[in-house]
Simulated assay, not measured.
Amino acid sequence: MEFYRFDKERGRRITKFDSDFLMSPIIQTAQGAHIGCMYLEADGLIGYHQAVSPQILLIIAGEGEVRGEANEYFKVEAGDAVFWQKDEWHETKTTNGLTGIVIESEDMKPSFLMTGSLKIPRSCN
């Protein structure tokens, strides 16, 4: 399990074509990708299971806790990204609700674009 940030502070200002916005790079894939938005309501759970492919969970609203193969939970909140390798066991849960984007693809390396974005995990145990 790897942790990253994609919040505004990690963004780069884009001014090309008279633009003015911040872009926080997340992922680039050479193969197809499955992308979905997950809505966990209060006391929601994505049960403990193995990742069917490399996947990254981008927390866009709310907060919760994640764990990998160890039984240690880490707090996640908006702007956090969690990456799991294929076959890695993991779980996500929330008390108050959480919205996230999940990207699954066989060819993903978040450290390629989010270098330097690694954050220190906030243990819940």
Score class of each variant (00 low, 15 high):
residue 48 Y to L: 13
residue 35 I to L: 05
residue 86 K to G: 05
residue 12 R to N: 10
residue 111 S to E: 10
residue 91 E to C: 12
residue 55 Q to E: 11
residue 56 I to S: 00
residue 72 E to G: 01
residue 53 S to P: 00
residue 115 T to W: 07
residue 106 E to W: 08
residue 77 E to T: 08
residue 9 E to M: 13
residue 3 F to E: 01
residue 3 F to W: 03
residue 95 T to I: 09
residue 38 M to R: 02
residue 61 A to W: 13
residue 20 D to C: 08
residue 123 S to D: 09
residue 106 E to N: 13
residue 35 I to T: 13
residue 90 H to L: 07
residue 70 A to H: 13
residue 26 I to R: 00
residue 105 S to P: 06
residue 7 D to A: 12
residue 122 R to D: 12
residue 42 A to D: 13
residue 24 S to L: 06
residue 13 R to G: 09
residue 45 L to W: 06
residue 125 N to V: 15
residue 67 R to D: 02
residue 82 V to H: 00
residue 115 T to F: 15
residue 120 I to Q: 13
residue 63 E to I: 02
residue 6 F to H: 11
residue 81 A to L: 03
residue 53 S to H: 05
residue 64 G to L: 04
residue 85 Q to D: 11
residue 57 L to H: 03
residue 7 D to Y: 11
residue 55 Q to A: 11
residue 3 F to P: 01
residue 37 C to N: 11
residue 70 A to G: 06
residue 103 I to G: 00
residue 123 S to L: 10
residue 8 K to N: 14
residue 57 L to M: 14
residue 78 A to W: 07
residue 97 G to N: 05
residue 82 V to G: 00
residue 7 D to G: 15
residue 62 G to P: 02
residue 64 G to A: 07
residue 93 K to I: 11
residue 90 H to T: 04
residue 82 V to R: 00
residue 19 S to M: 11
residue 59 I to G: 01
residue 40 L to T: 05
residue 116 G to I: 08
residue 51 A to R: 12
residue 114 M to P: 05
residue 67 R to K: 15
residue 32 G to D: 12
residue 37 C to T: 15
residue 67 R to H: 02
residue 35 I to A: 10
residue 13 R to K: 14
residue 125 N to Y: 05
residue 112 F to G: 00
residue 117 S to L: 01
residue 28 Q to T: 10
residue 59 I to W: 01
residue 92 T to L: 03
residue 89 W to A: 11
residue 124 C to L: 03
